[in-house]
Design a protein around this nucleic acid. Structure first.
Lengths: 208, 208
DNA sequence: TTGCGATGTATCGGGCCGATACATCGGGAC
DNA sequence: GTCCCGATGTATCGGCCCGATACATCGCAA
C-alpha cells in the first residue's frame, strides 16, 4: 500500500525521503497515519531493488546540495515504475477497502478512471456497511451483557460508520452524475461555497 | 495493547483463544480492528511465559471437551496477571491515545478510577485536536496545491475529528459531573430513550 | 562560537496481519 | 448410515509497519 503511495507521489515529481514523508502526511487523509521512517527507507530500498524507482543525484543545481558525503538522495520513478503504478491504480483487492488502502487509492482518484473510482467507492461502502451491521448486531443482541462505557463506544463507532456510508453515497452519486468530485457546502469552511473549479480528471501527467 | 485487552477479558472469566477473539471483536470498538489469530496465539504464549496467565485444562465439566488430544486450551489470569493489569489500567503512555490504545482503555473504563478516566479522555482529546489542527493547517495553506479528491478526503477527516472531539467533550463533562458515562438521546437507536440504568462503576469483580 | 532546532538518512526489535495448515464437531443431504 | 460441509479450534510463517535510536549537516540566533 505504501508502495503505491510512494510511486504515486514520485510520479508527480522526484523527491527525497524527508519530503516524501511530508507529502505523504499532507495528502493521505486521516485514514492513513503519518508514515514512519522505519517503514519509508526500507520500502524505498525495496522499490529500488524492484526497479520501480531510481536514485537521481541531488546535485541537479536547483536544490542546494549537502556539500559532503551522503547528501540527500533524490528518488525518481522509472518507466517500469509508472507501468506498475498504472496497474495498481486500476486493480483493487480486499486491502483496498480498509482504512489505509482506501485512503491511498482515494488520494490518487484524480488519476483513476471513473469505472475504477466507482468500483472502489462501492467496495468501501460495502465494507463499512458490513462493519455497521456488525455493530448493530452487537447493540441489538448483546447490549445487556455490555457495560455502559462499552455501549457508548459502540454507539460512537456506529455513528462514524453511518456517517462514512452517507459520505460515500454522496461521492457515488456525484460520480454517476458526472460531477467531479463532491461540491456540497460545508458550514464553517473557507467562506466561498464553491471555491474549487471541477478540474477534469486528466489520466496522467506523463512525460514520454 | 493487546496484552491489556486479553488480561482484562480473562479477568472477567477464563476463556480459550477462539472465544477470546470473539469477545475482543464484540467489546473493543471500531477503533480496534478484529484481532488476528496470527497475533492472538503468539501473544497468549508470551503472556503465559511472563506468568500473567496460565492454562486451565478444559475438562472442568461444564464445557463439552474435545475428546481427543489437543483439545481447546482454556486460559485464566494469574495473581501476577491481575496485578499487572491493575497497573496497566492506571498508567497511560503515548500509545494510550492512538485509536487502538484508546479503544482498549475505554473498554475497561468501568474498572478504571475516575481520575484516570479523565486523564485518558483529556489525553485523547488533545491528540485528536492536534490532528484536527494539522488538517486545518493543510486546508488553509496547501488547499490550492491539492486536487479536489484529496481536499474532500481531508474535509471528511476534519469532520470526523471535530465529531470525536465533541464526543469526548461530552464524556469529559459527564465524568466531571459525576454521571457515568453518557446518557444523551440518540436518534434512531433502540426505541426507548434511556434503556440502560446508570450502573455505578464497581472497581473490579474480583474473587480473593 | 557555540549551541540548538530543523533537515536528512538509516537500522533494529517487535507488534500485528493475512495466508495457510491441520484437526474436531454437529448436523443436514442422500 | 455415511458423507460432506460449515463452524469451531490451535498454531506457524513471511512480511508490513511502527517507535526508538543513532548519527550527520544546515541555518541561525544568542
Amino acid at each position: 500500500m505504501l508502495e503505491m503511495a510512494i510511486l504515486g507521489l514520485l510520479q508527480e515529481t522526484p523527491m527525497h525521503g524527508y519530503e516524501l514523508r511530508k507529502e505523504l502526511a499532507t495528502k493521505l487523509g486521516t485514514l492513513r497515519a503519518a508514515i514512519s521512517y522505519g517503514t519509508l527507507y526500507p520500502t524505498l530500498k525495496r522499490l529500488k531493488l524492484a526497479g520501480w524507482i531510481s536514485e537521481a543525484e541531488a546535485s541537479s543545481g536547483i536544490i542546494p546540495p549537502m556539500t559532503s558525503k551522503r547528501g540527500r538522495v533524490v528518488y525518481k520513478i522509472t518507466a517500469e515504475g509508472k507501468e506498475h503504478f498504472a496497474d495498481l491504480l486500476t486493480q483493487a483487492g480486499p486491502e483496498t477497502y480498509d482504512d489505509a488502502g482506501f485512503g491511498v487509492h482515494f488520494t490518487f482518484f484524480s488519476r483513476t478512471d471513473r469505472a475504477t473510482r466507482l468500483r472502489i467507492l462501492e467496495g468501501r461502502r460495502r465494507r463499512v456497511e458490513e462493519q455497521r451491521e456488525g455493530i448493530r448486531e452487537i447493540l441489538a443482541r448483546a447490549a445487556d451483557r455490555l457495560d455502559a462505557y462499552t455501549l457508548e463506544l459502540q454507539r460512537h463507532g456506529l455513528d462514524a460508520c453511518e456517517r462514512e456510508v452517507r459520505w460515500l453515497e454522496e461521492l457515488i452519486t456525484n460520480e454517476r452524475s458526472g460531477r467531479t468530485p463532491a461540491f456540497r457546502n460545508r458550514a464553517g469552511l473557507a467562506g466561498a461555497p464553491n471555491p474549487t473549479p471541477p478540474e477534469p480528471p486528466r489520466p496522467q501527467p506523463d512525460r514520454p
